[in-house]
Write a protein that binds this DNA or RNA. Structure first.
Length: 267
DNA sequence: AATGGGACCTGCGCGC
DNA sequence: TGCGCGCAGGTCCCAT
């Protein structure tokens, strides 16, 4: 759902067309998305402040505020950000600029969250987060996975090992590398791990270029869908033909998560 | 360390 | 056509 490429897309678009934004008004349409701080405190902490810049860490969107502090957004499964002057049916929090511009945090299932912090260290997810997959060296990548006895797919999605990989890109990168999702990480050869890193990098980079994958609710900030969906090889393609070997893509559960793969191509 | 649950949530597609 | 059910997946939390 919103994983690294989707969140990166959103951050880049906000960076171009939404900031700096002086916050004139804050509308909290659903207080359930606000975590770790009282509603009034959030409103007080935002009103009159300026969003100076937008950054991403893992799957988190980080608004840097004037006068020290950050607004940290997590889209979780079903969230998206839209810049529009018409309030979306699923909008949970709206930031209004003085000139009528608006940033809406939308979330159909209300599992996403918004936090106001003084330092990023206050966010436990960030504190524990592993390196960025597009920055990690081959050696570091090897070190992360080679001594682990767990299954490679859940490990790829573990944010404390690598930040930003979710169910879509874990499945796609394993297909690309020809690795079965249930392989123990410590059974992978150096060559396989090198290939997995290369696949992960190229898929993430390509997905960012395409504006991410719209599987369900995710949108770019102008409301349009991401276009990487047409490039998917296994995710949501069970019972369809493999693009490489013409065999059937199957779906199983790995670590409790739906997992599509090609039994012919992935060993 | 790893695994397997449940909890949080709503919208969608399925079977009857 | 309508209704109930299971599933979708990111993270935290608990038990084993």
């Amino acid at each position: 759902m919103p994983e690294l490429p989707e969140v990166e897309t959103v951050c880049r678009q906000l960076g171009v067309s939404a900031v700096p934004l002086k916050i004139a008004k804050v509308d909290i349409l659903d207080p359930r998305v606000v975590k770790g701080v009282a509603i009034e405190e959030l409103v007080r902490g935002l009103k009159g402040k300026t969003i100076q810049s937008v950054a991403r860490r893992g799957k988190l969107i980080i608004f840097e505020l004037s006068s020290r502090g950050y607004l940290v957004l997590h889209l979780r499964i079903s969230g998206w950000i839209v810049q529009d002057d018409t309030v979306d049916h699923h909008a949970r929090l709206c930031l209004h600029g003085a000139g009528g511009e608006m940033i809406q945090f939308c979330d159909s299932r209300v599992l996403g969250e918004v936090r106001l912090v003084r330092t990023l260290d206050e966010v436990s997810l960030i504190r524990r987060m592993g390196p960025e997959p597009l920055e990690v060296s081959a050696k570091e990548f090897m070190n992360i996975f080679q001594a682990r006895s767990g299954k490679i797919k859940p490990l790829l999605m573990d944010q404390s090992l690598l930040a930003g990989i979710g169910n879509i890109y874990a499945q796609e990168s394993l297909f690309c590398a020809g690795i079965h999702p249930e392989r123990r990480a410590d059974s992978l050869s150096q060559e396989e791990l090198r290939k997995l890193r290369r696949c992960l990098r190229s898929i993430l980079t390509q997905a960012i270029k395409k504006g991410g994958t719209t599987a369900r609710t995710y949108r770019q900030t102008d409301g349009s869908g991401g276009e990487y969906g047409g490039h998917l090889c296994v995710y949501q393609r069970h019972r369809q033909r493999c693009r490489r070997c013409e065999g059937k893509i199957v779906k199983t559960a790995v670590g409790g998560r739906g997992t599509c793969f090609c039994p012919g191509c992935q060993r």
